[in-house]
Amino acid sequence: MQTNILKLDCLRKTFGGVVAVDDLSLSFNKGEVTSLIGPNGAGKTTVFNLITGFLKPTSGKINFNDTELNHKKPHVIAAMGIGRTFQNVQVFSNMTVLENVMVGRHLRSRSGMFFSSILPPMLRGEEKRIRSSAKERLALLGLDQYADVPAGSLPLGNQRMLEIARALALEPTLLFLDEPASGLNARETVVMGRLIQKIKSMNITVVLVEHDMELVMDISDKVAVINFGKLIAEGTPNEVQLNPDVINAYLGT
């Protein structure tokens, strides 16, 4: 028996006249990789933004482990153990690669403004722990040789890896990846696929938005297809691939 970690109930989002997400009901199983696919403009990123608090739903409910997420701010949702990456990569280009991941430890450390500025020796232990766990994440993603490089100078593929390292530093139980393979070459995409499987093996539930169908079909336990904000199919990769509605949505009107 599978347990849900996240459940969307009649989720709806409109932008003026545009219905970006149209009464979407969908649940995500704990420990699985679920892919959310659909043509451009289908509403996938909007779903991510609704769940992670960057957008407010017009109506509907989002439940994470039986807690309602509606109207919570992004940083509160992060504190509940939900991590994410961005379709248009958002590394902190003014900081080094290691510092980027250290920001990911923000919620796993406590020191405030007062002690940080007045008594830094008191926080040396915490600072050391932040640094070493950030380095672990970098090593996991094979970025350790870039630790002291400004993040903005990394090639796109590595920036996408860095975003994942940073999100993993949060120690999430649920991770949203928005097109992690876009802009990556074939070899990098294979590495990304293996990485996502590794993340799954760390007991992290993954929700993936991706246009690379080979990658999606390879690593997903479940695939949900949306078009114009509506769910049109849901099932195992095989089931979805054979669904005539899906073929229609992808091959044209």
Partner: peptide
């Protein structure tokens, strides 16, 4: 005091806000 702050958890949070507000808040800032 400023130098200490910059190189602390709080200071990294501030620089993250400068880099990308969305990414910073997605990490709990």
């Amino acid at each position: 005091l400023a130098v200490n702050l910059i190189h602390s958890r709080v200071g990294r949070g501030l620089q993250a806000i400068h880099g990308s507000e969305d990414a910073a808040s997605s990490l709990g800032v």
